[in-house]
Amino acid sequence: MIKEVHMPKLSPKSDQYFFGKWDKQPGDSVKTGDVLFEVETEKAISQVESQEDGTLKAQKVATGDTTKVGDLVATIEVA
């Protein structure tokens, strides 16, 4: 089954962030709690953790992209 990963709300004050970098590449196995990617908000660099166990299937955004809360960021193949 494919699960979609959407941009979480990382800052109480804004809904638009700079996408930092990927910590997992397509094909990598991911576990719940693994850092998937980093996002730059006004006051921090947030490391977003996976909420699923599975394999990272596709990255939908790239470093430097501006992303909004709710945007599709990645897909994970869950067994």
């Binding site: 921090a44 947030s46 953790e49």
Partner: peptide
């Protein structure tokens, strides 16, 4: 640029 120690983890749930 933001320094690396500003990296924080975030568990949405």
């Amino acid at each position: 640029a933001k320094p690396s120690w500003l990296k924080v983890t975030y568990d949405q749930k």
